[in-house]
Computed example of a mutant assay.
Amino acid sequence: MSSRTKARKRALDILYGADLRERPLADALAEEALRATQQPQREGSWPYAREIASGVDEHRAELDALIAEHAHGWTLERMPVLDRAIIRLGAWEILFNDEVPEGVAIAEAVQLASELSTDDSAGFVNGVLSAIAHSR
């Protein structure tokens, strides 16, 4: 597993946990930063995970507006928390990280959904992120 893939999973854990617990993302990031200093074996994935989570936090209103626009028939509140976090992560990579090709961002998000969420989630994530990518 590549270091970026590990970082995405770590960022997803941060985003999902903060959303599920309805706590500020800044608090979850601070907690994870402390954990990163205590677990040097995980140090390689921390910088990009922090970049993703911070980026999602910084651009959340814009990301959520685009997600709501392209998630036909689904409101953000109605989406499963995990799927919402995966889509936010993927949308941030598509829109704000020029180093990651759109196809890679979508494929990585779909893989996370396939591994961690429901049977229908991968298709849903793919559809929403593809629509966001095409709307750029």
Rank of each mutant, 00 (worst) to 15 (best):
residue 20 L to E: 13
residue 32 E to Y: 04
residue 25 L to Q: 11
residue 78 R to I: 03
residue 59 H to C: 11
residue 34 L to D: 12
residue 127 G to Y: 02
residue 87 I to V: 15
residue 18 A to W: 00
residue 8 R to P: 01
residue 126 N to Q: 11
residue 84 R to A: 04
residue 123 G to A: 15
residue 66 L to A: 13
residue 133 A to F: 07
residue 105 A to G: 03
residue 75 T to E: 07
residue 36 A to L: 08
residue 129 L to F: 02
residue 115 E to P: 00
residue 3 S to F: 05
residue 89 L to P: 00
residue 108 E to N: 08
residue 16 Y to D: 06
residue 117 S to L: 12
residue 73 G to T: 11
residue 79 M to G: 08
residue 56 V to T: 06
residue 95 L to S: 09
residue 7 A to C: 08
residue 76 L to N: 12
residue 79 M to T: 04
residue 118 T to I: 13
residue 34 L to I: 11
residue 106 I to S: 03
residue 100 V to F: 08
residue 39 Q to N: 15
residue 116 L to P: 02
residue 40 P to D: 14
residue 122 A to C: 02
residue 123 G to R: 09
residue 16 Y to K: 14
residue 52 I to K: 01
residue 95 L to P: 00
residue 40 P to H: 14
residue 28 A to I: 05
residue 72 H to R: 09
residue 105 A to L: 05
residue 10 R to A: 07
residue 113 A to C: 07
residue 129 L to V: 05
residue 7 A to T: 00
residue 45 S to Y: 09
residue 121 S to F: 02
residue 75 T to M: 02
residue 24 P to T: 07
residue 122 A to T: 03
residue 106 I to V: 11
residue 120 D to M: 10
residue 8 R to W: 05
residue 76 L to S: 04
residue 18 A to R: 01
residue 93 E to Y: 02
residue 124 F to C: 02
residue 70 H to K: 10
residue 91 A to G: 14
residue 99 E to G: 04
residue 72 H to F: 11
residue 69 E to T: 10
residue 74 W to Q: 08
residue 118 T to P: 02
residue 26 A to E: 15
residue 133 A to T: 07
residue 64 D to Y: 03
residue 103 G to E: 13
residue 118 T to Q: 11
residue 54 S to D: 08
residue 106 I to F: 07
residue 40 P to M: 11
residue 22 E to R: 15
residue 5 T to A: 14
residue 132 I to K: 04
residue 55 G to M: 01
residue 90 G to I: 06
residue 117 S to F: 10
residue 4 R to W: 00
residue 119 D to K: 13
residue 136 R to L: 14
residue 102 E to V: 12
residue 18 A to Q: 00
residue 14 I to G: 00
